[in-house]
């Protein structure tokens, strides 16, 4: 454990922020964050979470580094090609900030492991590359009552939202979940990953950084949560907007008559 003087110096720029300060830094050090996917979003997301002093970061990814990843997944180098992404990311992050405990999980998130894994963390950041996993993460976070900061990219576009579907807003209306935005039929769509649609590398860096910021805000309580809102980033137009994402009372997870009672639909 580094001495207090080194800690004070490492996080000096956080400590002077009244929204973070010593109390916020301690919350970051105590936080356990689960990151789904060590891809383009994961690269900047993980680097900023580790640099910020998040105490425990788990990374689940079952893929290995390939040459076509290096255009955007800036945690990896050519030496990593063929090696597991989770382990390579963990090695990079441990060097970046030895204060952090990094746990690489070389596996796929499934209906069998999702609930236990998420239960063991305080907050989840989803940066995976497919809709089926996004639904699984959403449902598992709802059942375990864990906040989910979810980012997605495609071509020049990015979307970012925080889901706390297990809570109500100040009017007593439930917060939306991912299913209030995206319908179930998208779970079977798998032709929209980066390989098929293309992705501009720098955009993944932007969205992953925004995602890290929202995770840090949820942990420290700084600023306004994105829960109930959706940020849409248009890289070609260089515009961003934040819009309201209302709860859909007919959604099957936290709607008026829910039909999803557990994760069995993901098995």
């Amino acid at each position: 454990m580094p001495d207090n003087e080194a800690l004070t110096e490492r996080y000096a720029r956080h400590l002077v922020l009244k929204e973070i300060g010593g109390a916020g830094q301690q919350k970051l050090a105590a936080a356990r964050v689960l990151v789904i996917g060590a891809g383009g979003l994961g690269a900047s997301l993980l680097a900023y979470l580790a640099a910020a002093g998040v105490g425990h970061i788990s990374i689940i990814d079952d893929d290995v580094v390939s040459l076509s990843n290096l255009q955007r997944q800036v945690l990896f180098t050519e030496d990593d090609i063929g090696l597991p992404k989770a382990a390579c990311a963990a090695r990079f992050l441990t060097k970046l900030n030895p204060d952090c405990t990094i746990t690489p999980i070389e596996a796929r998130l499934t209906a069998n492991n999702a609930q236990d894994l998420i239960e063991a963390h305080d907050i989840v950041a989803d940066g995976c590359d497919n809709f089926a996993t996004r639904f699984l993460v959403n449902d598992a976070c709802f059942f375990t009552r864990k906040p989910l900061v979810s980012a997605a990219v495609g071509r020049f576009d990015g979307q970012l939202a925080t889901f706390k579907a297990y809570e109500n807003d100040e009017k007593g209306t439930p917060f939306p979940c991912y299913r209030s935005l995206v319908p179930e039929n998208m779970a079977s769509v798998n032709d929209m990953d980066c390989a098929a649609t293309g992705i501009i590398g720098a955009l993944t860096g932007i969205l992953g950084s925004l995602q890290a910021l929202e995770v840090i805000k949820e942990i420290t309580g700084a600023g306004d949560s994105l829960a109930g809102r959706l940020m849409i980033y248009n890289g070609l137009a260089a515009t961003a907007r934040v819009i309201r994402l209302p709860w859909d009372p007919t959604n099957p997870l936290n709607g008026d008559t829910p039909t999803i009672k557990d994760l069995s639909i993901h098995a």
Binding site: G40, D157, Q159, T197, T204, D248
Partner: peptide, 25 residues
């Protein structure tokens, strides 16, 4: 919300955007 498509009447000067779902990471 999808369940409000029928009951949501458009009004003069409404600003509508079509948001495509993206799922890449």
């Amino acid at each position: 919300p999808k369940s409000a498509y029928v009951t949501t009447m458009l009004k003069e000067n409404d600003r509508i955007e079509i948001v495509h779902f993206i799922g890449g990471g």
